[in-house]
């Protein structure tokens, strides 16, 4: 029987600086067998270990089809993430997972798909967006609305540019008022307001949103106004986790363990406990 807590060694092969406090790490598993067999679905997460520092939870930001490696985007906020930001290419880390449920991509087929992201909240969406775009023909209209505090805080800038160039998806970028630069060509305004302006149709559509709690709160209000039912809205919750397997008790809310029963939920599922976590 394998000890579930023992991570698998992974080597950092690339580090991309996204913003002043976000870096994306590309990791390759050291064991050949594990490297080939590791598979996950968009929305799942891993426990990321730094020797002698600790372990933190990150969603997998690369796509399930990106074979041979995974990527995690890490925002520097605490002890472990600060240590991760000190790491260099060729350093070893530990990974265990993938854990949690995933986005129900089958349910999204033949529907309009709207992504609404804020800040580092684009990381889990990016995995799904990449997957959706690689099977573009299976989906109807695709809209990506993404915003951050400032231009400098937008993550995955190269990809944002690529998405903007594509005629088969609508990409709307925004920064909070005051966060714009002189040459900023996107919108200026908070994500929920921009969502209201873009005004996607609630008919035969599904929304996937992730971002800071305050953004989610107002995005939900806007979606309600636009006629989206709670079942049409998916989000992925961030919560303090240690074990990742529904045992340590930290992410328990109601009878749900966010790590095991989530992190992906429809708004109708979380409605009952959203008051408690907001």
């Amino acid at each position: 029987m394998r000890n579930v807590y023992v991570p698998v060694p992974a080597k950092i092969i690339d580090i991309k600086i996204e913003t002043r406090d976000v870096k994306t790490y590309r990791l390759v598993f050291e064991y050949d067998g594990f490297r080939d067999d590791f598979s996950f679905s968009a929305g799942q997460f891993v426990e990321f270990s730094v020797p002698a520092v600790g372990e933190s939870t990150f969603c997998i930001a690369s796509a399930p089809d990106d074979k041979g490696y995974i990527e995690c985007s890490v925002k520097k906020v605490g002890k472990v993430t600060e240590a991760i930001h000190m790491l260099e290419v060729d350093n070893m880390v530990g990974i265990r997972g993938p854990y949690g449920n995933c986005f129900p991509i089958e349910d999204m087929k033949d529907k309009d798909v709207i992504f609404v992201g804020g800040g580092i909240g684009l990381a889990p969406l990016r995995s799904l967006i990449r997957q959706v775009l690689s099977g573009r023909e299976n989906f109807k209209k695709i809209t990506i609305i993404y915003g951050a505090l400032s231009v400098q805080d937008l993550v995955y800038k190269d990809e944002l540019e690529e998405w903007q160039k594509r005629a088969d998806i609508k990409t709307v970028l925004t920064v909070d008022p005051g966060g714009e630069t002189a040459d900023w060509k996107g919108r200026i305004g908070f994500v929920p307001s921009v969502l209201e302006e873009v005004s996607p149709s609630g008919t035969n559509s599904i929304v996937i949103t992730c971002g800071p709690p305050i953004m989610i709160k107002f995005v939900l209000l806007t979606l309600d106004k636009l006629g989206f039912a709670p079942e049409q809205i998916l989000t992925t919750l961030e919560m303090k986790m240690k074990c990742g397997i529904g045992q340590c008790g930290r992410c328990n809310v109601g009878n749900i363990y966010v790590c095991k029963d989530g992190p992906v939920f429809t708004y109708s599922q979380i409605k009952e406990f959203i008051e408690e976590i907001n």
Binding site: Y5, P51, G54, E55, T81, M239, C243, C248, G249, R250
Partner: peptide
């Protein structure tokens, strides 16, 4: 429980839902 690092050792130890750090994020 909690999972913490002491030097190079990763340790699992009891924790309590009454603690101030139990659900506090980084």
């Amino acid at each position: 429980f909690d999972i913490i690092d002491e030097g190079y050792f990763r340790i699992r130890c009891w924790d309590t839902c009454s603690s101030d750090t139990f659900t506090k994020m980084a």
